[in-house]
């Protein structure tokens, strides 16, 4: 056992990277669910974002354009979900599952030309002085812009939901769509926008995996992160900061347990391997002992005639 082999600064820096795809996807799904829509297609939207982001970054040579394209790709796939659930009034669970299957297949097809290609590197922020500070520099100021964007997004969503009129309307639609409709709010339009936002975030999360965390394109490379994001939203009681906490816990313990394994710590590996799931659930369940509950209209179909 040699704990000195673990460099805490590098550890924290890499746990932030590991947490970001999960964070982005979960915060998008949180907004969709707060508007009353259960979109199980997160995995499909992520992988679509991963491949569109990768393809565009490779073709244009610009990772930034890649990320923009990934958001557009994820949103485009979620538009399918909008049509199915908001206009055709299809079952949300079935449509979401279909979206995941479709996204996985579509991305495999679209990505065939991109196997084994290197994407252009996403540059890290390099703020003169700040990035060179010991310890704080690599942890706080040495990452790529998308990682910071994820954190700002959480803050933005939190502020929007808590303090703004738009946030209030979104929550009203999610809690009771009939009442919101009676008040004159466009339920379908608001939900459509929330779904598109969720799709764009999931796409960004996927591209973060293919452009930064791995970085390469491989079929099916999101390997279930979308499902973890879905679970995270529930365990976080639909609250943005808890999503952040959960994502960092999960990403953090994933990286930490790999580090402990490599350092040869005398904890059985099975426990280490299950620890990210266990600890994240435990912490969030304890936190949700207060009176938090799901949006009342979550998963219910709305039609103005009812």
């Amino acid at each position: 056992m040699d704990l000195s082999a673990i460099n805490p600064v590098l550890l924290i820096a890499s746990l932030m990277v590991a947490a970001t795809p999960l964070l982005l996807a979960a915060i998008g799904e949180l907004v969709a669910e707060r508007s009353g829509v259960l979109n199980l297609g997160v995995e499909g939207m992520m992988i679509t974002g991963a491949v569109t982001g990768f393809a565009i970054a490779v073709e244009t040579g610009s990772p930034l354009l890649g990320f923009v394209g990934a958001a557009a790709g994820g949103a485009a796939l979620s538009f399918l979900f909008v049509i199915l659930t908001q206009f055709a009034l299809a079952n949300q669970v079935a449509s979401g599952l279909a979206l995941t299957l479709f996204g996985l297949g579509l991305s495999a097809l679209a990505g065939q030309r991109y196997v084994g290609i290197k994407p252009p590197p996403t540059p890290d922020l390099d703020i003169p002085i700040l990035s060179d500070l010991p310890v704080v520099g690599p942890i706080l100021f040495g990452h790529d812009p998308v990682l910071y964007f994820g954190i700002f997004l959480v803050a933005g969503v939190w502020a929007l939901l808590k303090f703004t009129r738009a946030g209030l309307i979104l929550r009203a639609v999610g809690e009771n769509h009939d009442a919101a409709h009676a008040l004159g709010y466009k339920v379908v339009r608001i939900r459509a926008l929330a779904i598109l936002f969720g799709g764009a975030c999931a796409g960004l999360g996927g591209a973060y995996i293919s452009l930064v965390r791995v970085p390469q394109w491989t079929e099916g490379m999101t390997a279930g992160v979308g499902w973890i994001a879905l679970a995270l939203v529930v365990f976080a009681s639909w609250k943005p900061w808890r999503v952040l906490l959960g994502a960092y816990l999960f990403g953090g313990i994933t990286v930490l347990q790999l580090n402990l394994q490599a350092a040869g710590v005398a904890i059985p590996v099975e426990y280490l391997a299950m620890s990210p799931y266990l600890i994240t659930i435990l912490v969030l369940v304890i936190l949700s002992a207060d009176k938090s509950r799901a949006p009342a209209s979550l998963g219910r179909i709305f039609h103005a005639s009812q």
Binding site: R213, T222, V255, A262
Partner: peptide, 17 residues
């Protein structure tokens, strides 16, 4: 098969020398 986790594992090992 989990590219993100495999990459994390490789990075961890590289960070540890």
């Amino acid at each position: 098969f989990d590219p993100a986790k495999e990459a994390d594992a490789a990075r961890t090992l590289i960070e540890q020398g």
